[in-house]
Design a protein around this nucleic acid. Sequence first.
DNA 1: GATCATACTTACTAGTAAGTAAGTTGTCAA
DNA 2: TTGACAACTTACTTACTAGTAAGTATGATC
Lengths: 190, 190
Amino acid sequence: MTPINDTKNQIIDLAESLLLQRGYNGFSYTHISSALHVKNAAIHYHFPTKTELGVAIIQRSRQQFEKWTLHPRMSSMSFAKKLDAFCDIFRDFLKFEGHVCLGSALEHDFNTLPETMQQETSAFIADFLIWLEKLLKDGREAGDFAFFGKPKEQAVFVLAALQGASQMVRATDTTYLDMAIRRIKQSLKQ
Amino acid sequence: MTPINDTKNQIIDLAESLLLQRGYNGFSYTHISSALHVKNAAIHYHFPTKTELGVAIIQRSRQQFEKWTLHPRMSSMSFAKKLDAFCDIFRDFLKFEGHVCLGSALEHDFNTLPETMQQETSAFIADFLIWLEKLLKDGREAGDFAFFGKPKEQAVFVLAALQGASQMVRATDTTYLDMAIRRIKQSLKQ
DNA sequence: GATCATACTTACTAGTAAGTAAGTTGTCAA
DNA sequence: TTGACAACTTACTTACTAGTAAGTATGATC
């Protein structure tokens, strides 16, 4: 048979891709099963409910982000380089046709999401904001960044711009994210 | 019977509200018909397809925005006041429980939208960007705004931040939009 | 008073959604 | 060789989706 967890991981991969492309209410188990050439019930075997599948997607992404933040190469980076790397996360999402970042996709469907997914979504956004706030705070203290007000407020602003731009790309032009990123960096210069 | 266009307008009102709350794939004709205490087919009488209803929502919004830009009181406003008024559009969306701005909602569902709705969505976003670009350009020339680079790039940045923040609010806190607006204004100061 | 359009309702259709119960098959361990 | 389990399939259910065809009440017009 197939290797252990192979189908399960393929399901999460595909479901995440569909979520980023079409939103939580825009994909079904049939989308996944037909793409993987298995039956509808096979998906239900691995993820009895769509809610469990949704939670699995977010939890895996949270783990990936945590791993990213803890990666050895991060500790040797300058604050500016870290911000660059963070912006690259959003650029990477757009490499796949029609994708948007996960936070943006989940926020949009928030009101129609089951409660457990809502909780995971809020935690996911909080992960990003906490990391970003610390980067901006430490970067300003070190003299690498310059901005007024609280680091948290600036973090909200940066994340909002990144998410907003990654979404705007769909109805406009893919260069718009780069425009926003240039402006974000500009807004942090002395 | 009911006054002319009353039901039709009520349908657009409700459909728009549902679209902003739940996304295009998150509401059905049944949501509308049961709320208005009419039958499913009554909605189809006014809007034969969901696509036509979707297009009607966007077109009405575009007309409302055009009317807003041409309102007599606008011409006497300072550039800063105009920007304030523009930001208020986004604040107003959030007054209704769980709403997000229309542009954000449409961009999110873009890939699953019928073609006519995609075209209207792109035009809707373009309306906003063109107005904003002109405001920023004229404002900088008059010495009221200060920023580097092209007005268009700054316009993309401002709209991205507004849309992103209006969406982030769902998974976080309603104060986050105000944070972003404060930062936007700060980024345009000398 | 007949005709006609408007604004519906009743009663359906075909398709798709998530989800389930029961049976099948390959693999591995005792 | 025999269980036992993982990983499915087959065959279904219930609920909801957009959309339609045909009929009806109401008011305005000729």
